[in-house]
Amino acid sequence: MNKKASLGQRLCAAPHILWSAIFIVVPLLMVVYYAFTDASGAFSLEGIRRLSDYTTTFLRSLWFGIIATIICLVIAYPLAYVISQLKVKSQAVTIMLVMVPMWMNFLLRTYSWMTLLEDSGVINNILGKLGIGPFHMINTGGAVILGMVYNFLPYMILPIYTVMTKLDHSLIEAAQDLGANKLRVIRDVVMPSTRSGVISGITMVFVPSVSTFYISQKLGGGSFSLIGDVIEMQFQVSNNFNFGASLSFVLMILILICIAVMNRFGEKDENGGVII
C-alpha cells in the first residue's frame, strides 16, 4: 500500500478525484463560506448566534435518529444472522425481498405510510372492522420514527449480512468445542467479528435519519420539526441561504462527533475500515 502509485493507477483515480473535488469538496467549502457570512457577503456570526433558538430541534433530531438507529439494529442484527444461516438460494431470495422496497421511490413509500396511518386510514379501517381502535397514529413522534426505521432498515441489514456471510464457521465450532454455550458464542465470537458491519450500518441509518425532512413533514404533520425541516425551510421558503448553511455546518459537525464516538467502539476491530 505504501508503494508509490504507478502512472496508470493515478490516471485511473483521476476522474474520481476530479469528481470528488467538484461535487464534494467545493460544495463543502461553499457551505462553510455561506455559514460565516451574511447576505451581503461580509463575515458574520449571526447565523451561528441564532442557532441557540433551535437547540430543542437539534436535540430532537439526534434523539429520533438514535431511537430509529437502535430499533433498526435490534431488528436487523438477528434478521441478518438468520438470513446468513439459510441455504445460498434462499439467501438470494430473502435479500432480494429486503431490497425490493428500495426499488420504489423514497417519497412514494413515505407518502403511502400516510395513507396507512391516518385516523381513517387503512390500518384503522381494518382494526375498526375487528372492533379495535381507532388508534391515533399519524402526526406523532412514533410515526416519524416508524418512517425512519422503515425507510432506512435495508441500509442496516445489508452491511451486517455481508460480514455475517464472511463469518468463519471454524471459529464458532472452536468456541463450541471449548465448551461455550450458544449465548457465549454469540457474545464472544459472532458479535466481535461482525462489528465492522454493525458500525457501517449504524452510520448509514443514523446520518440520513438525523438529517431527514420529508419523513417528519409527512408523518409528523409539521409539529415534529427536525433540523432537516428547518434547513429546508431556509433554502426553499425564507431564502436565507446563510442561516441554512450555518445549520447544515453545525449538523455536519454534530454527526462527525457522533461517528467519532462510535468509531471508538470499533477501534479494536481488525477489519478497521469504517465507511462514513
Partner: peptide, 15 residues
C-alpha cells in the same frame, strides 16, 4: 418569515 419559522419550530410539549 422569522415569525413563521418560530411558529413551525417551537412549542412541542415533549421537550
Amino acid at each position: 418569515t422569522s415569525l413563521w419559522d418560530n411558529l413551525k419550530i417551537e412549542g412541542n410539549n415533549d421537550d
